[in-house]
Design a protein around this nucleic acid. Structure first.
Length: 162
DNA sequence: GCCAACGTTGGC
DNA sequence: GCCAACGTTGGC
């Protein structure tokens, strides 16, 4: 039986953003934002096929000092074409993405909350229960990735219990 | 700023 | 379909 006939259990995700470009504070200010600019097929497929309204999302700051999980959002709108791919003036412009047959898709993410403190990457690495997170696998660079409910909740605990 | 690890592109 | 060259990611 399909698990999403109105009773689908929310899934959990982690998305990366460079805070110099777009931070958790920017998301807090905007309340909802289109998660545009993703130009990796595997990440796109997660957004296009698997991210559903109400899914919970860890917001991860990459290329930061330190890098780490900064907050929580939720999927506010499911997959639709990424308009930046059609915009010649945008740094993510892709001439191969045709509005008639869009190559790149995005979801909208709504701000839920900042963590009480940023959980640095180093600290995540120290937790055995998180060892299998895609984020912690050597060399991986996926900017949209699934996490398990247990991993998600564990990270929230790390923030809230100190 | 460096560079290792990836992903994509395009010639063949 | 191979694979070298190139571009990007992202921690350090």
């Amino acid at each position: 039986m399909p698990d999403d006939q109105g009773t689908r259990t929310p899934k959990h995700w982690l998305v990366k953003t460079e805070p110099d470009v777009y931070s958790i504070d920017d998301l807090k200010r905007d309340r909802v934002t289109g998660w545009d600019g993703v130009r990796n097929y595997q990440a796109r497929n997660f957004m296009r096929d698997d991210m559903k309204r109400g899914d919970l999302v860890l917001i991860y700051h990459s290329n930061a000092k330190p890098p780490g999980v900064a907050g929580v959002g939720e999927v506010a709108k499911e997959s639709y074409p990424d308009p930046t791919a059609f915009d010649r003036s945008d740094s993510h412009y892709d001439p191969k993405s045709d509005p008639e047959n869009p190559r790149w898709m995005q979801v909208d993410i709504r701000f839920k909350r900042k963590l009480k403190r940023l959980i640095p990457l180093d600290e995540l690495r120290d937790v055995p229960a998180l060892a299998k997170m895609p984020l912690l696998q050597r060399g991986q660079r996926l900017s949209v990735q699934p996490v398990t409910k247990a991993q998600f909740e564990r990270i929230l605990t790390m923030s809230d219990n100190k």
